[in-house]
């Protein structure tokens, strides 16, 4: 879903993250269009969290390279974007929560345990919306109602301990949207919730996208969740993007062997089955950052692997089929795409 006018909300190019000698993530390229929901999928340790934290400058001690431009200029060249990488904290901080927010997996610990929900909302509203007193109070209640809290007034006076996990994640979402960001990065926001609550929170996020036009990077282990929410799927494997495709095309016909394996291993895509919570039902393991070869990183686990070309050099992330002009591209990283076919 690419909204008319302007470029993507976020344009990531050649993003690399390393700690000392260890490269965790390299050469990440992806765009997030206005109002678009991009699912970032991959097994544990593939670098999903590290990449998104790096984009927001929340990864102290890491060496980060490449570029991540917020509000990237579109074809019309309407305005300059904001380069996030390397931006000093002083200039980056005001963008967080206002232009781009990030939320995390565990709603039990994502809220300050000794401050009331009201206090926490008012703090963000004062920071990013310049509201205080009555106005902040009113806006906070509205926000809580917007995220589906039944008794927003009462909720304001409670500390997080009094709320269920699902309610807390709703409050976290209210905090994240309080500044009216154009982009929300959600790192497995539903993983800790049970299945019915998970579906409700996904519904809420879709509603918020419809209401606010907010784009999302939705990090998940769970392909069923991705299929329920995403417009676009980006698959990460061992610190690299291995497939980037429109959700419909991806779930109909994933092209890269790793994605195929994931999809084949995920039961019941039509419903959010608790059994499909985690990927990793694939045989074998993701190679750790310091054991990555020069060739295709999936080679040790790939059924289609041929020593030549697979192990010789790194396959490029290429267009799978010639996309029509303006049509959404479908990219995959595999040296044998043609031979394997659909």
């Amino acid at each position: 879903m690419t909204a008319p006018g302007g470029g993507p909300v976020l344009r990531v190019r050649k993003l690399g993250v390393s700690f000392g000698q260890t490269s965790l993530v390299d050469g990440l390229n992806f765009d997030v269009g206005r109002g678009e929901i991009v699912a970032l999928v991959g097994e544990s340790g593939s670098g999903k969290s590290v990449s998104s934290l790096a984009i927001l400058g929340l990864l102290p001690g890491a060496d980060i390279s490449g570029s991540a431009v917020l509000h990237a200029p579109g074809p019309a060249g309407d305005r300059d974007g904001i380069e996030l990488l390397g931006r000093p904290e002083r200039l980056l901080r005001p963008l967080r929560g206002k232009r781009v927010s990030m939320i995390f997996q565990d709603p039990m610990s994502s809220l300050n345990p000794i401050r009331t929900i009201g206090a926490q909302l008012r703090e963000i509203l004062a920071l990013h919306a310049g509201l205080d007193g009555r106005a902040a109070e009113r806006r906070a209640v509205d926000l809580l109602a917007q995220v589906g809290i039944v008794d927003p007034q009462g909720c304001m006076r409670l500390i997080p301990q009094r709320l269920s996990g699902g309610m807390r994640q709703r409050v976290v979402i209210a905090l994240a949207i309080a500044g009216g960001p154009d982009l929300l990065i959600a790192d497995e926001p539903t993983t800790a919730l049970d299945v019915t609550i998970q579906a409700q929170v996904l519904r809420l996020l879709l509603d918020l996208r419809a209401d606010m036009g907010m784009a999302m990077v939705f990090i998940t282990h769970n392909l069923a969740v991705a299929s329920a929410i995403a417009d676009r799927v980006v698959v990460l494997y061992a610190g690299q993007i291995v497939e980037d495709a429109p959700a419909a095309a991806f779930f109909a016909a994933p092209r890269m062997p790793y994605s195929r394996g994931l999809l084949a291993a995920a039961p019941g895509l039509d419903r959010i089955a608790s059994g499909a919570r985690r990927l990793g039902t694939l045989p074998g393991q993701v190679p750790p950052p310091d054991e990555r070869g020069a060739g295709c990183r999936f080679a040790p686990r790939c059924a289609w692997m041929m020593p030549d070309p697979c192990a010789r050099r790194m396959p490029a992330l290429e267009h799978v089929a010639p996309a029509g002009p303006g049509g959404p591209p479908h990219l995959a990283r595999c040296a044998r795409l043609e031979e394997i076919g659909e």
């Binding site: 967080r96 929560g97 565990d106 300050n112 920071l127 990013h128």
Partner: peptide, 22 residues
């Protein structure tokens, strides 16, 4: 090391506020 500190940072709460008020 807890998540709510990271959440506060991810939502743009200034560092001094996080230390003094959170």
């Amino acid at each position: 090391r807890q998540d709510h500190i990271r959440t506060a940072r991810a939502l743009g709460v200034p560092a001094w506020r996080i230390v003094v008020l959170h």
